[in-house]
Every structure is written in structure tokens, then in C-alpha cells.
Design a binder for these strands. Structure first.
Ligand SMILES: Nc1ncnc2c1ncn2[C@@H]1O[C@H](COP(=O)(O)OP(=O)(O)OP(=O)(O)O)[C@@H](O)[C@H]1O
Length: 740
DNA sequence: CATCCTCACCTTTTT
DNA sequence: GGTGAGGATG
């Protein structure tokens, strides 16, 4: 039996991969390009350690980049080992942040925290820092809270303490950051809370200050495996170093070309110096790509070669050559989105599994237009990123109640919900409570009784009683999380509030809370586990795999994933590469790596698209140049397709036409000619006579009503409201018929 | 104290 | 195009 399993683990790998799995004597660095099976090696290695050496899974620490990746790896390991190895409860295939949280929860007192740690997500951070800045008499209009938080986060990622930052501050902004940082950490501690960065820092602190505790985990984690090592930051590097410093059984995999998180402290040096930091380390290169077609690999390799700061590597495949990459030149982002949605729709009708299609973009904001097109064509899709479930107002409100029940000194939670639903406790009252708490350096709950002069003190006391009642009920220990959520929802009047609002939106919110409830039905978590988990879960973890849906996400989120068909939209200068990185060579190279990551997600096809004009949210449409990365793709591996909707003169087309074989859309070229002759006639003979209110039919959109006319004569444009939305159409081109 | 309105400004990427 | 701060009004 066992030997069979072992063979299964080994035989599905090529010789280099096998070597990587079998080598267990000391530090191991696996350097490899995209799709070469790095993750597969790690997965099989875990299975191998378990099967060959009987290493229980609880002695193996495997760190992945996202919770989703961790879950996937867990599932794959389970599949290889069979369900018999149900060490379910004590599995450590996880992310650095979850690892830190799990450990810190157990030892919070050792670093000056109490039990019941709370994790602050980014909106909690913002409200806390705002509060601090206001206390510091700083105008949050001139100094943006986000900027301060960035400064703090950068400091943390470089292991700089508040004190050091104060000493290093050499201008007033830095001084502000340093002072805010100091206050921020104090407040967090007071609220028994940590932000994401603190999880790592505090774990490090725990390990550094408590040899005995470190030693427990060094013994526990006999093997340390780390995926995506190129995107590890300083604290993460230190944590993995400490954990493996006794036994040196640390196996890491990474690809320097996929380093895309340097902006949040990921340091390439960590992987480049691995052999130096871990003397005697063995390095294995994986060079065969199993994921993509020859063409896709070729294109990606050519693009990434243009990075100067880079070691070249030889990545090859035995897969079929495959199709050329498509590149669609659209008029604007709407045209682009429509085209992408059409293509996808056709592809799905032709039998493609929607789950095997992904649309990738540089910024979250770009998803909206795409979503609209997907909806119009009735294509089911899911979005990674954007607003997470746990970041929705109503969910956070309920969670805030839960936080306050768990931890009465959580002022942020208190302020969030003290007047939701309304209890006639206004800004002034809250301000006074905050001031008092600030003065006395006590949590708000504890200063309430000293504030008898407040007009709405009665409401505040009632509120406190309400919370205390809920806490009492919970502490009795007979309630499940589901019960608690329902009780909060009903007893606080939240449900009533939503009901009375009566809007569609309120209905949705109510449903979301029900969903939160449902999600706790089967969980075994304690209240604090549940709360912190909810802060750690990202949008990536929430998606249900069951449906057949197309995936939309940012290039960053696509890391580590793979799809048959990849649509890479916004392949433009200022977009990819992003405008903010154009002047900074190192960041430009990171953009190129991002492009490389995106392209190498594809197994079968890459579909690029470019919008000739794109409007950045508040601006009007700006002409866009095609991405420099486009020119780095070998010409013979590209099929360029022009949109029918392009203006007669298009800057991208004229820039490309001498070098590239541009396919003029067949329909359009005929139309052009025909229109040209018509045009002359039109000029003389036809006068378009459309007025607001006219009913028209269009072959493309069906029946609609004119809601606006722009221009006149044969150059008239009509804004027409169709069932699926309003369109701007020129009757000259649009073949409209007037319905009398 | 609550609600409605206006105006400014905006996110690049995420655990 | 949307969110949040701040002001005017009930
Ligand atoms: N030896 C092999 N034989 C067949 N298929 C393989 C082999 N090794 C890996 N694969 C497949 O190749 C694909 C890529 O593997 P994997 O995700 O492990 O690569 P990776 O190096 O982690 O990629 P990336 O760095 O791009 O995320 C997967 O579908 C995997 O199943």
C-alpha cells in the first residue's frame, strides 16, 4: 500500500522535481519559472514526508501566500494521502498571518496583550488613525489618514519601532507619522488589537523575547516549507529563519520574475541571498513548464527578458505550440468590455467551462465596466477583490457588537455601533465620551458613569445595559454563534431598522446578515476565533467554487492560479505599466513582472485588449498608447484585431500600421466603402430628422427611444435609451429606422 | 439630534 | 461616478 502511494507521489514528477521532493537533509531552494510545478513539488513533498518518514502533518509548517492557496494545498495533500490522515484539527498549511494569529492567541499575555485578540482591518485602521490625528490637532484634510497608515506600515515592514521612527524623523510629515505611529500602537494595545503588520511583528517579538516559546515551535515544526518565497518581507523572513534555525530543514520555492509585492515590503534579496543565509543550501532549478502552450510561454519569456535586473533562465515546454495571442484594439473601455464579454459568451456557447476563463486587470476600478458588459450578456461571473463580504457595513456592524461583547474596551467597535440603530446618541455625546476616555486613558465603557451631566446619558446607559445583557447571555455558554448573531440582529433593533427602511438595499443587507448567520451554522469556532478569522479572510477565500462562473480579478490576485483562457484587459501605457511607475525603473520592471505573471496564468489562450481612449474615474476619456510590453511580444505570435468602432483616425493604428499586420475588420471595410458613397449622397440629399421622444429600432439593440440629440444634419448623434441601457448612435452609421 | 444636501477628492497593487 | 466631510434645515 505505502509503496504504491509513494510511487504515486514520485512518479508524477520529472527528475528535477523528484530530486526536490526527495532532498530533505538541509536548506533547499527551488528556483523556477512560471508553471514549472513549484507548488506541486511542495505539495508532494509534504505527502512524501508524511508517507516516507511518518512525519505527522502537525510537525510540518507549510506557508502559502493566500488563504485560498493554503486551502488548495490542504485539499491536494489530503487527496494524495487519503482521508485517513484526518489530522484536520492540527494542520499547519497556512499563511504567515494566520500562523502568527494562531500562535499569538495562545501566548498573547507573553507580549503584554490579553486574551481575546482582535484584528483590525483596513477600515478599522482608518477610523483609529483618524481619531488619533484629530486628538493630535491635525487637519485630516491636509494630511491624509491613508498616507499616515502607509508610513506606519512601511516602518513596520522594515522592522522600525515607533521610537526609532521618532528619532529618525527629519521633517514635519515624518514627525507626524512617527507621533501618530506611537499613539496608534498605544491605542491598539489598549484595545487589545493588532493590525495585519502587527501580527507578524508581534510573532517575531514573541519569538525573540521568549526563547522557551520559540523553542516549542522550533520543535513542533520539524519541517518548514514556504511557497512564493520571492514575495516574502523582512518580518516573514525573520520568522522563517528563527523557526528553522535549529534543524535547518527549510525548503522554499520561488521565482524572482514573479516578485510583485515589493511595494509592501517584499524583498527580492531574501530569495537571492538564500544560499548565503543558509550555508550549505542546495539549489534546484525547474525548467520545464507544464502549464502553457509553447506560444504562451514564448511570449511571456520574450517579455520578461526585457528586464535588466534579472538572471536569465531557460524555461521550455513539451506542450503543443498552440494559438497565437489575440490582441483587440478597442475604441474605449466600453467597447473593450463589450468585445471581451462577446468573446467569452461565444466561447462558453462553444463549450468552454466558464471556470476556466479569467479576466485580469491592473486596478480594481477597471472591473466595473467589465461587470456591466458581463451582465448585459448574461454571463455569470465572480469578482475577487473589491469589497469583501466582511467589509460590508451591516456585517461590520454585527461584528462590532460581537467584538464589544467579547471585549468591552474595544472603543472602535463601540463608536461604530453606539448609535446604529439610532439611539439618539449624537456626535456631541460621542465626542464627549471620547474626550473623557482620552483624558483618563480609559476605555469608553469605563467612563460612562462619570459623565452624568450628558443630556443623552440615559440612552448611553441603556446602550451599555443592552450590551451587558447580550454579554451575560453569551457568557452563560449555551448559545451558538448563530444564536448570538440572531440575538444581536433582533434585540438591538437592527432587524427592525432594516425592515422599516423598506428599500431594496436594506433587504440585501438583511440577507447578508442571514448569510453571515448561515456561515456560522457548522463552525466550531469560539467567539474570538470567529472574529479574528473574519478579519483574516479575504475576498479570495469567500468564493464558492460550485457555480460555473467566469472570474474577474486583478493581476496581483491571479498569482499562483491558472486558467485555460486569460483575458488581459487594459494593455496600455499608464495602465500596465501603471502611470505611477513610469518614471521609476525598478517599479517599471515590477510592472513587467506583473505582466509576466498575468500571461503565464494561461494554459491555452491569451487575449489582450487595448482601449484607445480610457477615462480615469473623474476625468474624461484620454487617448491611451498601447503598452510597451506589447512591442516586446514577437510580431509573428500575435493576431491583431481592430474594433469596428474605432475612429477613422486612430493613434494606435497609425503607430502600429507600418510594423504590424493589422486586420481591418471585414465588415467594417466594406461598410466604409459603402458609407463613403452614401456619404456624398447623404450630404446633399438625406436630412436626418430625429427629435427627442422618437421611437426607433436598431438592428443591434432593438427598439429604443431618443432621449437626446447632439449635432445636426447628417452628423447628428442620438442618445437612445434601449432596454439594456442607453447608447450613442449616429444614424449615418447605425442603420436606424424610425417607428411612426 | 437626525436628515438631507453639496462639494471636494479620489486607490495601484493586499495579507 | 461615488464616498465622506461639513453645513443647513427640520
Ligand atoms: N511533472 C508534471 N507532470 C505533469 N504536470 C505537471 C507536472 N508538474 C506540474 N504540473 C502541472 O503544471 C501546472 C503548474 O504547476 P504549479 O502550479 O505547481 O506551478 P508553479 O511553478 O507553482 O506555477 P506558478 O509559479 O506560475 O504559480 C499545474 O497544473 C500542475 O499540475
Amino acid at each position: 500500500m505505502d509503496t504504491q502511494d509513494l510511487e504515486l507521489i514520485i512518479n508524477t514528477l520529472n527528475p528535477q522535481q523528484q530530486e526536490a521532493v526527495l532532498y530533505t537533509d538541509g536548506p533547499l531552494l527551488i528556483l523556477a519559472g512560471a508553471g514549472s510545478g513549484k507548488t506541486r513539488v511542495l505539495t508532494n513533498k509534504i505527502a512524501y514526508l508524511n508517507k516516507q518518514f511518518n512525519v505527522p502533518l502537525y510537525n510540518i509548517l507549510a506557508v502559502t501566500f493566500t488563504n485560498k492557496a493554503a486551502k488548495e494545498m490542504q485539499e491536494r495533500v489530503e487527496k494524495i494521502l487519503g482521508t485517513s490522515s484526518a489530522h484536520h484539527s492540527d494542520q499547519w498549511i497556512t499563511t504567515f498571518h494566520s500562523l502568527a494569529f494562531k500562535i499569538l492567541q495562545r501566548h498573547s499575555e507573553a507580549i503584554g496583550y490579553q486574551k481575546g485578540l482582535v484584528i483590525y482591518d483596513s477600515s478599522d485602521q482608518v477610523s483609529l488613525i483618524k481619531k488619533i490625528l484629530i486628538d493630535m490637532d491635525i487637519d485630516i484634510k491636509t494630511i491624509k489618514p491613508r498616507a499616515i497608515l502607509n508610513g506606519i506600515s512601511n516602518a513596520k515592514n522594515s522592522l522600525i519601532t515607533p521610537e526609532t521612527l521618532v528619532n529618525k524623523a527629519d521633517n514635519s510629515f515624518k514627525e507626524t507619522v512617527a507621533e501618530a505611529y506611537t499613539q496608534y500602537q498605544k491605542k491598539l494595545l489598549l484595545n487589545n488589537a493588532m493590525d495585519f503588520d502587527d501580527l507578524l511583528l508581534n510573532l517575531l517579538k514573541l519569538f525573540k523575547e521568549h526563547d522557551d516559546i520559540l523553542s516549542i515551535y522550533q520543535k513542533k515544526f520539524q519541517y518548514v516549507l514556504i511557497d512564493e518565497y520571492q514575495d516574502i518581507n523582512m518580518p516573514q523572513y525573520m520568522i522563517s529563519y528563527l523557526l528553522s534555525s535549529k534543524h535547518k530543514r527549510i525548503y522554499v520555492v520561488g521565482d524572482a520574475d514573479q516578485n510583485i509585492y515589493s511595494w509592501r515590503g517584499a524583498n527580492l534579496q531574501n530569495i537571492l541571498n538564500f544560499e548565503k543565509d543558509y550555508p550549505g543550501a542546495k539549489t534546484i532549478l525547474l525548467e520545464q513548464n507544464y502549464r502553457s502552450t509553447g506560444t504562451i510561454l514564448n511570449i511571456s519569456n520574450e517579455v520578461i527578458k526585457h528586464n535588466k535586473i534579472r538572471k536569465d533562465k531557460n524555461l521550455w515546454t513539451e506542450n503543443a505550440v498552440g494559438e497565437k495571442a489575440e490582441c483587440f484594439i478597442a475604441h474605449n473601455e466600453y467597447d473593450e468590455a463589450e468585445h471581451v464579454a462577446r468573446q467569452i459568451s461565444q466561447s462558453i456557447h462553444a463549450g468552454t467551462d466558464p471556470n476556466e476563463i479569467a479576466i485580469l486587470y491592473r486596478t480594481n476600478a477597471m472591473s466595473r465596466v467589465l461587470e456591466e458588459s458581463m451582465m448585459q450578456l448574461g454571463i455569470k461571473y465572480k469578482i475577487f477583490g473589491g469589497l469583501r463580504f466582511y467589509e460590508r457595513k451591516e456585517i461590520k456592524d454585527i461584528l462590532a457588537y460581537m467584538r464589544l461583547i467579547l471585549n468591552p474596551s474595544d472603543d472602535i467597535a463601540l463608536i461604530r455601533i453606539i448609535n446604529v440603530p439610532q439611539r439618539k446618541i449624537g456626535k456631541l455625546t460621542i465626542q464627549k465620551l471620547m474626550d473623557k476616555a482620552f483624558e483618563e486613558k480609559k476605555p469608553i465603557m469605563e467612563v460612562i458613569d462619570t459623565m452624568t451631566e450628558l443630556r443623552s446619558i440615559q440612552s448611553v446607559q441603556t446602550f451599555r445595559q443592552e450590551i451587558n445583557k447580550l454579554r451575560l447571555a453569551w457568557d452563560a455558554g449555551t448559545m451558538t454563534l448563530t444564536d448570538l448573531i440572531m440575538k444581536i440582529f433582533e434585540d438591538t433593533g437592527y432587524k427592525k431598522m432594516l425592515k422599516e427602511e423598506g428599500t431594496q438595499e436594506a433587504q440585501t443587507r438583511s440577507e447578508n446578515i442571514q448569510e453571515l448567520c448561515a456561515s456560522t451554522q457548522e463552525s466550531q469556532y469560539t467567539l474570538e476565533e470567529f472574529l479574528s478569522l473574519s478579519a483574516l479572510l479575504t475576498s479570495q477565500d469567500e468564493a464558492q467554487e460550485s457555480d460555473s462562473t467566469v472570474t474577474l480579478m486583478t493581476l496581483h490576485s491571479a498569482k499562483g492560479l491558472e486558467y485555460d483562457h486569460v483575458y488581459l484587459v487594459g494593455f496600455e501605457e499608464k495602465c500596465l505599466p501603471h502611470v505611477q511607475s513610469l518614471d521609476i525603473p525598478t517599479e517599471l520592471e515590477e510592472e513587467r513582472r506583473l505582466c509576466y505573471v498575468g500571461m503565464t496564468r494561461a494554459r491555452i489562450s491569451i487575449n489582450l485588449s487595448v482601449a484607445s481612449y480610457r477615462s480615469a474615474y473623474y476625468e474624461k476619456a484620454n487617448p491611451q498608447d498601447i503598452s510597451r510590453f506589447f512591442r516586446e511580444i514577437p510580431k509573428d505570435l500575435l493576431n491583431i484585431q481592430l474594433s469596428k468602432k474605432l475612429n477613422t483616425f486612430n493613434h494606435i493604428v497609425s503607430a502600429l500600421k507600418d510594423e504590424y499586420d493589422l486586420k481591418i475588420p471585414a465588415v467594417r471595410s466594406i461598410q466604409l466603402v459603402r458609407n463613403k458613397t452614401h456619404y456624398d449622397e447623404d450630404d446633399k440629399n438625406v436630412s436626418y430628422n430625429y427629435n427627442v421622444g422618437d421611437i426607433v429600432t436598431s438592428p443591434m439593440f432593438g427598439e429604443g427611444q431618443v432621449i437626446k440629440t447632439i449635432g445636426q444634419g447628417n452628423a447628428i448623434s442620438l442618445q437612445i435609451k434601449f432596454p439594456q441601457g442607453s447608447k450613442l448612435i449616429m444614424p449615418k452609421y447605425g442603420k436606424l429606422t424610425k417607428v411612426e
